[in-house]
Simulated scan of single mutants.
Amino acid sequence: MSLPNIPDVTPRITLKREEVIHLLLTSVAMEEMSMSHIMNTEVEKIQQLLEREDISLDDMLRLNQSMERMLRNIISKQILLQFKLDHILELEGKSSVGDGGNTIEEGSVSIADDD
């Protein structure tokens, strides 16, 4: 039995600076939408519990604890998204940034896989 031949692929993606900024802003917006869906699901859980006739104090306390954990996670994610947005705004104002194998130059961005 022989091993499969895997072609040597070196991906090279070239994007304009404006395209990169738009993609980054889109990723922030999509994460915000995801969090809004999670919060909506939590609201639906509360509504379902309140519609029940046999609500116990333990059920309410468990739901409260679950909601508190979820809100803490959402707040943490919001803080990280704010940092990401701040970095995007900084990126918009800079003429060039180098980071590892990724380079961002005025007008275009080249991302090469160094592995």
Rank of each mutant, 00 (worst) to 15 (best):
N64A: 13
V20G: 05
P7W: 00
I55A: 09
R12S: 15
M67K: 06
I55D: 01
V20S: 08
H22L: 14
I38E: 07
S36T: 11
R12K: 15
T14A: 06
N64T: 14
S66C: 09
V28E: 03
Q65R: 07
E42G: 06
V20I: 13
S56G: 07
T10F: 08
I13S: 04
L49V: 13
R52M: 10
E42R: 08
S27D: 11
M35E: 14
V43G: 00
E44Y: 05
E51R: 10
E19S: 12
K45A: 03
M60P: 00
E51P: 02
L23Y: 15
L3R: 11
K16N: 03
R52A: 12
E42N: 09
E44K: 10
Q47C: 01
L24M: 08
L24V: 00
M33D: 08
L25A: 04
T10C: 08
Q48G: 03
R12W: 04
L63S: 03
V9D: 08
M30A: 10
Q47H: 11
S34H: 12
T10Y: 09
E44R: 08
L15S: 00
S56Y: 04
E53V: 07
M60R: 12
N5W: 09
P7M: 02
D8L: 14
D8N: 14
M39T: 05
L61R: 12
T26C: 01
D8K: 12
M67Q: 07
V28H: 03
I21N: 02
L57S: 12
R17W: 04
I38R: 06
S56A: 06
L61Q: 15
E68M: 12
Q48P: 00
D58Q: 14
E68A: 13
V20H: 05
I13P: 02
M1V: 10
L49R: 09
I13D: 02
A29E: 06
L23Q: 14
L57F: 07
D59Y: 01
H37M: 07
K45P: 00
T10D: 11
E51D: 15
E68F: 12
D59W: 01
T10L: 14
I38P: 00
R12V: 15
L57I: 12
S34K: 14
S2C: 07
E68R: 15
R12Y: 10
R62K: 13
N64H: 13
S2P: 14
D54F: 11
R17E: 05
D59M: 13
M60C: 14
S27F: 06
R12E: 15
T26E: 09
P11K: 07
P4V: 03
S66Q: 15
M39F: 06
M67D: 00
T26H: 05
E32N: 11
L50H: 03
I55E: 06
R52T: 05
E18C: 04
M1I: 09
L49W: 03
L3G: 03
